[in-house]
């Protein structure tokens, strides 16, 4: 008798679990359909395109080209034939390596300031929200260049706040030119950094609010300085947020309107070189994917979580 009841109980438990699984599956069903039809399928298609030799007439007449032979010509062209592609990839990666840490620390710093209580905090928060609202690369680049076309405005128009006075002072002190260049471009890039940090500041703000205030109370009782508090409490406890912010920054710079590689992809597409355009984007995506994976590994290994 007792045996029988445990058996039915087990059965019921199993059926409950499978019922739950089915219900859960139903909940995510819309996404599964969307992912399969509107993400996975086109992504695989684009991978296929990158291995195909496209006939421009077929594209113009909207005929499919399912019978095209497998070819590596597009990748070969991207890596050896195209004069600008590799250079653009390297330069965009260079900007990324330089900007991601800057943006991360800048937004962490600003979030730390905005988290304090002071007069005018609401206004300050509103200000830093503006870049989130106007978070469109196209509009920002118009605002930055003042609407002047880069072909005439030239390189200068990229820097909205160029600091020539600072450069002069530094040169007269005799510091090496490389350091001066780094410093001046960093200061000149204040526009870019500020406008690209919107979401990251929000992330850090909400991360800071998750740090229990009791930790700070204890540390101040023990006589820790603000500097120690930051590095021993705030920074480690913000590490999950830092991870998200870094990945977000990388993805954002990757999809940015002003990204030179994205322009290459668009140009190739505009010239109806579909295969080439697809190959460009896949090479770039694989590189970024590896970078994100590595960053994830490095930061993840040092991430501290608050026990809930």
């Amino acid at each position: 008798m007792a045996k029988a009841t445990t058996k039915t109980k087990k059965k019921r438990k199993a059926s409950l679990a499978s019922r739950n699984a089915r219900i859960g599956f139903l909940f995510i069903l819309p996404w599964i359909i969307g992912f399969a039809v509107l993400f996975l399928y086109p992504a695989l298609q684009s991978l296929k395109y990158s291995f195909m030799n496209w006939d421009k007439d077929a594209i113009l007449n909207l005929k499919g080209q399912s019978d095209a032979a497998f070819t590596l010509a597009n990748y070969e062209y991207a890596l050896t034939g195209d004069a600008t592609y590799i250079r653009d990839v390297v330069s965009s990666l260079g900007t990324m390596v330089y900007e991601v840490p800057l943006i991360t620390f800048f937004s962490m710093f600003i979030a730390g300031l905005l988290n304090q209580k002071f007069a005018g905090r609401t206004i300050a928060r509103m200000l830093f929200f503006l870049p989130v609202i106007i978070a469109s690369g196209g509009i920002i680049s118009i605002l930055q260049s003042g609407g002047m076309s880069t072909s005439i405005g030239g390189e200068e128009s990229i820097y909205m706040f160029k600091t020539t006075a600072m450069e002069d002072v530094l040169v007269s002190t005799g510091i090496s030119q490389d350091i001066i260049n780094f410093l001046t471009t960093t200061v000149s890039k204040i526009f870019d950094i500020t406008w690209k940090s919107g979401i990251q500041i929000l992330l850090f703000l909400s991360g800071l609010q998750g740090v229990p205030s009791s930790y700070y109370e204890v540390s101040s009782m023990e006589g820790a300085t603000a500097w120690e508090e930051f590095w021993k409490i705030t920074f480690p406890l913000l590490s999950p947020t830092t991870l998200i912010a870094v990945v977000y920054t990388i993805v954002d710079s990757f999809t940015d309107y002003r990204n030179v590689v994205m322009k290459d992809i668009q140009t190739a597409y505009g010239a109806l070189e579909l295969g080439r355009s697809a190959a460009y984007s896949w090479i770039y995506f694989v590189i970024i994917g590896i970078i994100i994976f590595l960053v994830n590994k490095i930061i993840f290994s040092k991430t501290v979580y608050i026990e809930e």
Partner: peptide, 22 residues
């Protein structure tokens, strides 16, 4: 896969999308 769909930029698969929608 949800996370993956955040990371993959739309530019990668926009052209096939165009053809699908056509």
């Amino acid at each position: 896969l949800v996370i993956l769909s955040i990371i993959v930029p739309p530019q990668t698969y926009l052209i096939p999308m165009y053809i699908i929608y056509r």
